[in-house]
Design a protein around this nucleic acid. Structure first.
Lengths: 235, 235
DNA sequence: GACAGATTGAAACAATTGTTTAATATTTAC
DNA sequence: GTAAATATTAAACAATTGTTTCAATCTGTC
């Protein structure tokens, strides 16, 4: 008899066990990490038997890898699409437009206090205790974005060496990542005197600060003889 | 009979058990985190009995807290001394001198691939899975440095609102932290085409990029009407 | 030497871990 | 309906965890 269990909502009952496990695993792995999350935690959240993890995923470690890819794949694609849009926008954006769009596209998936924070924490954990080879993680998730961001910067920014362009991208991403972490931190702790971190205000500052920083490289296309260029100490 | 065991060097034998445990714990907690480090790992590295941890420290968790303070206290003091030196140096340093000294003093304890990396990893782990209250961690280790760095910047940098000064400090620290992580990462993975991250070169870039970014605030002491100031959207 | 306190040692404790097993239930195909 | 394949279940497995116990040893004082 095909009795539809009417007391439970369809969303949690109808879905396959496989899918429920994957979803619960993403949440728990991001929250507490792989070691602190027991298989029984996952199966309890997914409302299934302990053995289901091994049956459907062949073990806890493999479930972690699939959770990681399922979580970060879409994020990476969203980022790359944002950068691609910047590469093709006509007319060529100003430096300020570029930075504002880049910051917004970079931060948008991360600022949310549930899912966005999951992204950040998951990646931080993976970087501390890598379960998939670090080289794979970098080549698949990090380097593509850095390289394409550098290409986009070449279109809109002042002329500079490719090496300097990479360092500028590092400066941009470093600022934004630090801001996201401050944003999440300030929402999770109460400090008496401090005002909560103002992410929107920081983006304004980021555009102003970084556009000036980038334009510092437009002064010396030919003569790079300022004392801090470091061009002469290459090698 | 006070037989001096001559087969073992004095450094590992003579020291008290208490001290050996604390040292081994710092190393292992930083490397693998609290959960992944068993008491037996620590006592094996410290060459003592399992019960010694509970006898000397009253438990694993308490040993972690003492390890954390023993690790980060000196680092914080070193940072504050560096900033204090910048505050009192005569004549007032140029912006470039300030940034170069700040970057060097900030990075110096962190770049080392054994102890410096331990600092970074330990703090990252504590931020992900806080064992001491986050507010204590921030008030004791982070905020003092941010505030004094802002005070030092007030002395050498262009005039700006205190809020903007804090955001500039965020930009500086965000860049430097990101660079340290790239520095450590590039030493631990082999990626075919990529050149290893050049930290010294990044510091040069950092000074150039950030001095220009800071000077972007020297344009409008009175009229802050650029479209990205955000002054009009306060509240 | 003898005693008291501090420290160390081996063994055992209860709890939790990931995984496996074998039986049962469900679905699919004919 | 029947049989094969798929999926789920409860129970048990061996291993590891932090902590405790209690006897043995060391250290300093009288």
């Amino acid at each position: 008899m095909e009795t539809q269990i009417s007391t439970c909502d369809a969303t949690s009952e109808a879905r396959e066990t496989h899918e429920r496990i994957l979803e619960a695993a993403q949440k728990l792995f991001a929250e507490k990490g792989l070691d602190a999350t027991s298989v029984r935690d996952i199966t309890a959240a997914a409302d299934c038997n302990v053995a289901a993890v091994n049956y459907h995923f062949g073990g806890k470690e493999n479930l972690y890898l699939e959770s990681f890819k399922a979580m970060l794949g879409p994020l990476r694609d969203q980022r790359l699409a944002m950068i691609a849009e910047l590469m093709e926008r006509e007319p060529v954006p100003t430096l300020e437009e570029f930075l504002a769009t880049f910051a917004e596209g970079f931060l948008d998936p991360l600022v949310d206090h549930s899912r966005g924070r999951m992204f950040m924490v998951f990646v931080s954990r993976e970087l501390l205790d890598p379960r998939l080879p670090l080289s794979v993680f970098l080549e698949e998730f990090i380097l593509p974005m850095v390289q394409r961001a550098a290409a986009a910067l070449e279109r809109v920014g002042p002329p500079m060496t490719p090496n300097n362009r990479i360092m500028c991208i590092f400066s941009l991403i470093g600022q934004l990542l630090h801001a996201v972490k401050a944003h999440h931190l300030s929402a999770h702790v109460e400090i008496q005197d401090a005002v909560p971190f103002d992410l929107a205000g920081f983006v304004d500052h980021f555009v102003r600060f970084s556009s000036a920083g980038l334009r510092a490289y437009s002064l010396d296309e030919t003569a790079s003889s300022t004392p801090f260029t470091g061009g002469e100490k290459d090698q």
